[in-house]
């Protein structure tokens, strides 16, 4: 909501202007990070500065250039459909902060 509007209005200016409180709040929700007020201020500054720096990529003409996800020319890496793993319960649960009846305990999820 507010975020979208802010983002629109930010176009044309520097990214430092776009990264406002609402953006930091929004990204915090996406990244599941809760920042203190100080951290938020710092994040706003850092992110704005980094993005302005990254914006120098706009000097480059990349039209017609395929985005390169992988550097290796490898395709079609498969495994056969054969069961190779046995009962992994103990190893899976080895580091569980909280377990019950061979399951991980999590705060109640609401549907």
């Amino acid at each position: 909501m507010g975020y979208g509007a802010d983002r629109e209005s930010g176009k044309g200016g520097t990214m430092a202007n776009v990264i406002d409180d609402a953006t930091i709040e929004y990204v915090g929700i996406l990244a599941k990070l809760e920042l203190s007020d100080e951290e938020k201020e710092a994040a706003k500054k850092d992110m704005g500065r980094m993005l302005d720096y990254i914006d120098q990529l706009n000097e480059l003409d990349t039209s017609g250039v395929e985005p390169m996800s992988h550097v290796l020319p490898v395709r079609n890496v498969f495994r056969e459909d054969v069961v190779t793993n046995g009962d992994g319960r103990e190893e899976t649960l080895l580091n569980a902060p909280e377990r019950k009846e061979d399951m991980f305990v999590v705060p109640k999820t609401f549907e």
């Binding site: 495994r79 459909d81 054969v82 069961v83 190779t84 793993n85 009962d87 992994g88 319960r89 190893e91 899976t92 649960l93 009846e101 061979d102 399951m103 991980f104």
Partner: peptide, 21 residues
């Protein structure tokens, strides 16, 4: 027979977390 990205069984009815890696 196995999961999409690992060699764990897809069979139903295993004890909780037994078909994991």
């Amino acid at each position: 027979k196995t999961k999409i990205f690992c060699g764990c069984s897809t069979a139903f009815g295993g004890a909780p977390n037994s078909h994991t890696c």
